[in-house]
Each structure stands twice: as C-alpha cells, then as structure tokens.
C-alpha cells in the first residue's frame, strides 16, 4: 500500500514537473540527501587514500583528480560552489560501508561497476567516468614483456577488497598457472612490497598502475604489460533508494561529458549563452528548465562548466598533464573514436 502511494506521488511529481509548475522545494522535499546537503552547505564525498589523477591530496590538503571533480561538479550544481565538498579518504574495504551507513553521500573512488555490487549491497552506480581494465606491472629487467610469459610460482601483490583479486584468480586459473597472492589493505603497502621484491608482479587497474608507477623510487625500472585482462568501468556510486540524488549525480557527470561534446568549456561558457544552438543554450542554462526537473537551480550546469570544466578539461588537468595516461584511449568522446557516449541532457 505504502509503495503504491509512493509510486503515485512520484508519478504526480513527474506530471507537476512536466507542466512546469514545479518548484525546487518539491524535489528537495522528496530527496533526503539533497535536503541534508543543502542544509549542511557541503557535499560529503568519499575518495581514495591517494591515487594520483583520480583523487589525491596535495601537501596543503587540496584534493584533485577526475573522481574528485565529479564531487565538485555535484557541489557546483547543488550549492553553486564547487569548493563546498568535504572529502573522506576511504580504503577499498571501508568504502561501501561508509556509503550505506550514511557517512558520505557520493562514493567517487575508482570503483568498478559490477552486477553484484549494484544489485546486492544497497548501492546504485550512476554512470562511468573512466573506462579502465586490469593489467600487470613487472620490473623491466625481468625480461617479461607479455603475460604469456608468466609461469607457475609467481607472486602477485594486490589490494584487498577489489575486483582485481577476483579477476586475477580468473586469469591465472584459466591459464593453469599457480601463483601466490599477497593481499594488502592499503595501496601504499602494496607498492612498497612490490618495490622491495616481495612480489614479481603488481596488478590493479591500468590507470592505477600508471599512477602508482609515478610514485615509485625509479619509475623507469617498471613496465605495464600490454594485456588487459578485464573490463573495469569506474564510476561514482550513491545509496540505493534516493532516485532524485542519483539523478543529480548522474547528470552532473553527464553534463561534463556533454559540454565537451558541444565544445563548451570553462572559459567560453559565458559567451556560449548567446549561442544559436538550443542544446548549447540549454547546457549553459540560457534556455529550458533542466535544473527544475532535478530540483536544483537552473544555473546548475553553467556552474559545473565554469567552476569544474568539461570532462576533457578535467582529464587533461588531472591525468594527461600529470603524465599518468597522456593518451585518452577509450575515454575519448564517441565522436572522436572513444566510447564516451552519454544520454542527451534535454
């Protein structure tokens, strides 16, 4: 009965929005997370404990990275200020509990979207902000240039509580290779153990390998093998059961990607308000009522683009210019040979 009432109210809400009678308070009333975020004045965001390019804090505590930018985009959309984010560094093990227990409202921590995580444990994945795949790193002097040269008896260092642990097992088992998994809780410990010779190979997402390589004593002494053994779509996660919040986070990410597609960036967004193209005008808030549908101000997308930038800017700033992965690979727009293809914001 209660469910019906809930569904009916949602339906009603949709109608109300359709007829443009909506006010922001309506959706805000429906979304506890949105209401709390506005009340608190900041977005609570869970990030990694330090992965260059994705979420990494500098000496003065400023967080940067493409995962960080997702949270900043949400803050810009909801609060109008991209700096109003409280970051909580989480280990792979803690991350989901922190989200389901309500310690954070967005988990943007290079987290792989899988069926069991999405369906089973009270989480909802909202989209993909980085297409990745698992790879292996070895020391250059080992003479190994491909995973086909792996032999039984290898030891592999890996981070606990990741899909990496499972993919690694699938990979080695399917090749009939027996191996020794050495599982650590923190990424820094994995790297330290690998660097000291405890393990022959270090395996995680390729972007992670590239990022961790920059942290090693002698980055040139290590190579990332060419093979990719799994699909790792990384993206932000929210709690199940707050669809308004889920939509806000999803579309904050999508707007960044769509802005790049339409050539809108942080420096030309203001000029684009006078564009002839209605889609561009909608994205910079000069036309339409996209924000109201989400229960937030209509300047939301304009704020994201001017304060955080489009996806391409974020990628360049955090991943390409830092030398982690200069080539965008699959994380290029679909119009340019990549697989970044998002639903249209209209």
């Amino acid at each position: 009965m209660y469910k019906y009432i809930k569904q009916l109210t949602s339906l009603l809400a949709v109608f109300v929005v359709l007829f443009a009678f909506a006010n922001e308070a309506m959706a805000a009333k429906k979304s506890k997370t949105l209401k709390n975020t506005i009340k608190k004045g900041f977005v609570r965001c869970g990030v990694s404990q330090g992965l260059p390019g994705f979420s990494n804090a500098d000496a003065s505590g400023n967080w940067t990275g493409v995962d960080v930018d997702v949270c900043r985009a949400v803050a810009a959309a909801v609060l109008g200020d991209a700096s109003k984010v409280k970051f909580t560094p989480l280990s792979a093990k803690e991350r989901f509990t922190a989200l389901t227990a309500g310690e954070i409202d967005i988990l943007s921590r290079n987290t792989t979207w899988t069926l069991s995580r999405d369906a089973d444990i009270g989480l909802t994945f909202v989209g993909v902000n980085f297409y990745d795949g698992q790879g292996f790193m070895v020391r250059k002097d080992s003479g190994i240039t491909s995973t086909s040269q792996f032999k039984s008896g290898l030891s592999a260092c890996v981070n606990i509580g990741t899909t990496t642990e499972l993919n690694m097992r699938d990979f080695f088992t399917s090749k009939g290779i027996s191996y020794e998994p050495v599982v650590f809780e923190k990424a820094d410990e994995v790297v330290a153990a690998y660097d000291s010779g405890r393990c022959d190979t270090y395996t995680t997402d390729k972007s992670g390998l590239a990022a961790q390589r920059t942290k090693m004593k002698d980055p040139d002494a290590h190579i990332v093998l060419p093979e990719t053994i799994s699909k790792e779509p990384l993206g932000p996660v929210v709690r199940q059961g707050d669809s308004v919040w889920e939509d806000i986070v999803r579309w904050s990410l999508y707007v960044m990607i769509e802005a790049e597609e339409y050539g809108i960036n942080s420096s030309n967004a203001n000029a684009m308000k006078a564009s002839e193209n209605p889609q561009i005008k909608r994205l910079v808030g000069a036309e339409g009522e996209l924000g109201a549908a989400l229960g937030i101000g209509n300047e939301w997308s304009y704020n994201i683009i001017t304060q955080v930038g489009n996806y391409g800017e974020s990628y360049k700033r955090n991943i390409a210019d830092t030398g982690i992965l200069p080539d965008r690979g699959p994380n290029q727009l679909w119009t340019k040979g990549g697989i970044l293809y998002v639903a249209p914001a209209r």
């Binding site: 792979a92 093990k93 989901f96 509990t97 389901t100 069991s116 995580r117 089973d120 444990i121 009270g122 989480l123 606990i160 509580g161 990741t162 642990e165 499972l166 050495v182 599982v183 650590f184 809780e185 410990e189 153990a193």
Partner: peptide
Amino acid sequence: AIAYPDIVLVFAGTAMMQTGRA
C-alpha cells in the same frame, strides 16, 4: 596490515568486500 591471511584479512576483508555482508 602486512598481508598475513588471517580471519580479519580473508573473511572480514576480502569476503566482506565481495559479498557486502558487513
């Protein structure tokens, strides 16, 4: 902390992460 596969690492670590049954 040092990768010895005891009950905390194996069960309250990996297994908890894979199942989400905190």
